[in-house]
Amino acid sequence: MPETKVSPLRSIGRRIIGAFLFLFAAVLIVYIGRDGYSDANDDGLSFLDCFYYATVSLSTTGYGDITPVTDFARLINIVVITPLRVMFLIVLVGTTLEVLTERSRQALRIQKWRHRVRDHVVVVGFGTKGRSAVNSLLAEEDAEPSQIVVVDTDQAALDAASALGLITVHGSATRSDVLRVAGAQRARAIVVAPNRDDTAVLVTLTARELAPKSRILASVREAENVHLLKQSGADQVVVSSETAGRLLGIATRTPLVVDMVEDLLTPETGLAIAERPVEPSEEGGSPRHLPDIVLGVVRDGSLYRVDSPEVDAIERGDRLLYVRKVTPAKHAAR
């Protein structure tokens, strides 16, 4: 169920108003029955005396200088003042209890999740590149949102990620303790997509030290920084500025080619590039003669184009990069 969020100031204001309402109710009750009370001066209770008695009574201070002496006044204290005292204390300490309860609940959820999560994907940075990477993961692999963790320093970006059902961690991914909270040491892949290239290098270094077996994929703006990412431990580096520039250059001559590339890179509709293992019936054959449009063959971790002589015959253990048609029903059901 959606939760109604109230600002801290409004919540505190409501509690203060409630406390004063309980206090004034006690003052009014004591003032009406003031003849049943005795004070140390034995000169009767004024309105100020009633206010004083209600304050020290509800706050459980109880100096004893004003006391109920008649049976009716004592009955009113038992039936009315005592419940008001309890409600007054609940209002005063309610904010603290609520914060402690919420923190304990959040810590328990995080602890359970960290013990349970395995083979997830950590996305560092939820800007344009990070959002696109998450959309591709959700569309291409049918990944569960709870298996994607977003790390960012921008709370607005984390709120947007949380609205998609993703796990969020607030902090800088250049710090190993933040990546540990995200479970990077047990992640299947780490996507590094910050807004600055120097941040990408630092994040990659930290992630590789913490997760030596995870696959790290990084994005940079400038091609001259690719070797820095590679040396830092990135398995794959994408140059965003050069890729966009190439598409712009192609669009000046053959704009429809750009449309086709965009179609291939958008897994939600049309055509998409996918990877699959070789079937036993396909072993020994040529990848160019398969019903699928094969673009390349992955063998022993290396990618070969479909026209390379090394992959004239498909072998067991090969994987095929091919063009597949996206079925709209699949995404309509998501």
Rank of each mutant, 00 (worst) to 15 (best):
residue 72 F to P: 13
residue 9 L to S: 10
residue 268 E to Y: 12
residue 251 A to R: 12
residue 204 T to P: 08
residue 126 F to C: 06
residue 187 A to K: 01
residue 77 N to S: 08
residue 255 P to D: 03
residue 238 V to G: 06
residue 251 A to W: 01
residue 197 D to Q: 05
residue 128 T to E: 14
residue 215 R to E: 07
residue 84 L to N: 02
residue 224 E to P: 00
residue 86 V to E: 06
residue 82 T to A: 15
residue 263 D to V: 06
residue 244 A to M: 10
residue 3 E to R: 14
residue 256 L to M: 14
residue 115 H to Q: 14
residue 61 T to S: 11
residue 15 R to S: 10
residue 253 R to F: 09
residue 196 R to H: 11
residue 83 P to W: 04
residue 66 I to E: 03
residue 15 R to C: 02
residue 24 F to W: 14
residue 299 R to W: 10
residue 216 I to L: 14
residue 106 Q to S: 14
residue 157 A to S: 15
residue 45 L to P: 01
residue 290 L to V: 06
residue 137 L to V: 06
residue 260 M to C: 11
residue 208 R to Q: 04
residue 15 R to L: 11
residue 23 L to W: 13
residue 182 A to D: 02
residue 110 I to C: 00
residue 173 A to Q: 07
residue 155 Q to Y: 13
residue 226 V to L: 04
residue 222 E to M: 12
residue 81 I to F: 02
residue 160 A to L: 13
residue 85 R to T: 14
residue 250 I to W: 06
residue 199 T to N: 12
residue 175 R to F: 12
residue 179 L to Q: 04
residue 124 V to L: 05
residue 236 Q to N: 01
residue 67 T to K: 15
residue 6 V to E: 01
residue 174 T to F: 06
residue 236 Q to C: 00
residue 175 R to Y: 12
residue 139 A to D: 09
residue 223 A to Q: 11
residue 217 L to Q: 07
residue 185 Q to D: 12
residue 114 R to T: 08
residue 71 D to R: 15
residue 32 I to A: 10
residue 224 E to K: 13
residue 179 L to W: 07
residue 18 G to F: 11
residue 232 S to A: 15
residue 266 T to K: 12
residue 164 L to M: 15
residue 188 R to A: 14
residue 124 V to A: 09
residue 218 A to E: 05
residue 276 R to W: 09
residue 128 T to M: 12
residue 59 S to P: 03
residue 157 A to E: 09
residue 181 V to C: 08
residue 91 V to F: 13
residue 223 A to M: 03
residue 196 R to Q: 09
residue 174 T to C: 11
residue 270 G to Y: 00
residue 110 I to L: 00
residue 303 L to D: 01
residue 172 S to E: 13
residue 71 D to W: 15
residue 143 A to D: 04
residue 110 I to T: 00
residue 9 L to M: 14
residue 111 Q to D: 00
residue 145 P to H: 03
residue 207 A to P: 02
residue 264 L to H: 03
residue 300 D to S: 13
residue 281 S to N: 11
residue 161 A to K: 01
residue 125 G to R: 02
residue 144 E to K: 13
residue 3 E to T: 12
residue 85 R to H: 07
residue 324 R to V: 08
residue 59 S to H: 03
residue 225 N to Q: 08
residue 303 L to K: 04
residue 71 D to P: 13
residue 198 D to A: 14
residue 121 V to W: 03
residue 238 V to W: 05
residue 334 R to A: 15
residue 303 L to C: 06
residue 187 A to Y: 04
residue 214 S to F: 05
residue 8 P to G: 04
residue 211 A to D: 00
residue 83 P to K: 02
residue 212 P to D: 03
residue 128 T to F: 12
residue 102 E to F: 15
residue 96 T to K: 10
residue 211 A to I: 09
residue 243 T to R: 03
residue 11 S to K: 15
residue 289 H to T: 13
residue 66 I to T: 09
residue 36 G to M: 05
residue 328 P to V: 08
residue 252 T to L: 12
residue 145 P to G: 04
residue 192 V to G: 03
residue 153 T to G: 04
residue 270 G to C: 01
residue 255 P to E: 01
residue 45 L to Y: 03
residue 28 L to T: 15
residue 9 L to E: 10
residue 331 H to D: 01
residue 139 A to T: 08
residue 248 L to V: 11
residue 233 G to T: 07
